[in-house]
Write a protein that binds this DNA or RNA. Structure first.
Lengths: 209, 209, 209, 209
DNA sequence: TATGAATGAGCTTTCATTCAT
DNA sequence: AATGAATGAAAGCTCATTCAT
């Protein structure tokens, strides 16, 4: 958007600064355990005062949500691109892209856990979460359809989404395993999930020959 | 185990007290949000002092692990019983039993999240976690085999386990939904997961050419 | 005051803006608890920036003082009107008018408390406070005189002023009581204070022995 | 109370420590403006950690209330002693004792302001406040009766209590005056209040002689 | 003169852990 | 072995004030 007036400029700058904070926070979340990311640390990393953060976000959960949603938007972009490439086994590729992204943005689940399991979300912010979720599920649904899965596609999309998230919470950092080993394991499981959600003629035992 | 010596007796008692604490903590976790359960509250509920808890567990994560493992043992018992009943669609039933249990013991994931994603687990305790996981996965593997799934059964068991956990983190308390509604949704998704992990001849389009 | 020069005009405008801020702040204080009124909220309510407020008042207490004094001027106007009405029991009416006003402008005491008990007042501003106090006390003194109280009238005015303020701090919002109930209680106490400050022939027991 | 058991001893000690904190806080309040007394400073003054304070008081207002009530109990003791001394003009002496005490424990009103005007009091603590207030008012009522004031004594006690409090809020630290000067002024006003609440035959102008 | 984003010291409160008894 | 008071670092958040634009 090209600013038309001085006001526009200022509000654009403000928005940019706000995004900057969320961006730095996102990096922090990618590198650290969710519990260890505090407002003070975000402030330090952004080279901004604590108060400034509260000038942009009215509380910590609002900032978390912003990061969460930005993660969501990134994923949506990646998945969209994957769907557009007309390669074979699109579903498998979508699953791998998704799990791959999550491996590099670990805190995504811990936030999900916070927003969904612990319910730290105001009614005001709920629609934002819903909207992002819906967009992502639309894409999963499309991938399922392409893969030949044509019954209950919405519910199946939910199940697929769940299953991939579950891989992460269950194995992304399984204690005692090296990072790369874990990552490969999650990708391997993503592949299995994908296969199970594809229409699988080949897996049917040959019958009458 | 029948005590043979006075020492045995004392150590049995000690073990009993330790279990008592873990048991009360487990109830607390079932009824409350993970974040709200503190050492103090566990001490109060057990009618034991804070210090006593530290006499049995060297830190809070050791106690959490004990609770987690006890949860695991309960699940294992339930799944075993399900496998023994020779009804049809055993895999589906196993999935439902598992998800059902988790609905009533929500904190299970938050602990999983703590141990796996946040890595709060000492090397010393890792084997205990491993052992329980292995037992549970053995059962899932068996269920898969019964359902006709015969390739890569170990990895498939991992994938199934992941998928079911994912249902919980993604939808168990989806904000804005009533508890009963959420529960039904999770069971419905468990069923879809089960179907996708079963051998599904019926889903193959008729090939009459 | 009619502006004579351009300078006058500008300075008049400036003064008007200053009064505007104080006026809005006054409304805010009347409707909200003292502790909840912040510079930010005053700025928002005035539709002016925080910085602008600091252009007119060098700190928050200067603004508070302005509000306090404006409250004082309002009270003075009301009490004057009451004194001019040649009704009977003027002292009682003055007391009720005063307490009534305070019931609708609660923060008055909290400011008094701030200025007097906590001493948040610069030497520069002291004369303004003094001047307003003196005017109000003049009126109380006159009311006492009308009521027949003719000894130590200045000190009695102080005592009367104190007593009415004390009603508010002691009972204006006594916890557990409804607002209307509290208000009535304060008016009732104001009446008792008035009676005690009037010359009370009737209260002397008949001495027929 | 003489401790009977070891338990008694421990609980007595605990109680003593709790009182110690309140006592130190009371001194702090006597010497400093209410706003400047923080949990941290109380902890420092008591040579105790912040956490310890929260072991004894569940929040800051509970501690404030304790201090307030202890102030109240002290006043009650003093007023009682005054009533028991069979000197003349007991009411006047009661008023002076009360105002004198408050001069040495300034924060009393700021707490009153907090509890009464700002309503920072949980339902649970309300009865404690009520009880102390009632006891104090009983004494004021008795003083009024002794002074010959026999109508509406309860309401009059309220009015008297209010009036004396008002002296403090209005003049205890009137800016620009020396401490001793202010103190004398408050005592002088207390005397005037007392006179006005006494039955005053002498003040009645001689009528028909 | 008006703006309002930035500041940061300071607030209350929490809670796993320690240790003298 | 059991106790539970003491600890204190660290959390989220507030708000009067400043200052570059």
């Amino acid at each position: 958007m090209v600013p038309k007036t001085f006001e526009d400029l200022k509000s654009q700058e403000r928005e940019a600064r706000k995004k900057l904070i969320a961006g730095v926070a996102r990096e922090l979340f990618a590198r650290n355990a969710f519990r260890e990311v505090t407002i003070r640390k975000i402030a330090q990393a952004t080279e901004v005062s604590v108060g400034t953060i509260y000038n942009h976000y009215s509380n910590i959960d609002e900032l978390f949500l912003e990061v969460f949603l930005e993660n969501g938007r990134q994923i949506i972009r990646l998945v969209k691109k994957t769907l557009e490439s007309d390669s074979s086994r699109v579903l498998s590729q979508v699953c791998r892209v998704y799990v791959n992204y999550l491996n590099e943005n670990m805190s995504f689940f811990q936030m999900m856990s916070r927003f969904i399991l612990a319910g730290e979300l105001t009614a005001k912010n709920l629609p934002k979460l819903d909207q992002t979720m819906r967009e992502l599920l639309d894409l999963f649904e499309e991938a399922l359809r392409i893969a030949g899965n044509r019954t209950n596609t919405r519910l199946s999309a939910h199940a697929l989404f769940s299953a991939l998230n579950g891989i992460m919470i269950s194995y992304a950092k399984y204690p005692g395993r090296a990072a790369e080993e874990s990552r490969e394991h999650t990708l391997c499981l993503a592949e299995i999930i994908a296969e199970n959600f594809e229409l699988r003629e080949s897996r049917v035992p040959v019958q009458d020959n």
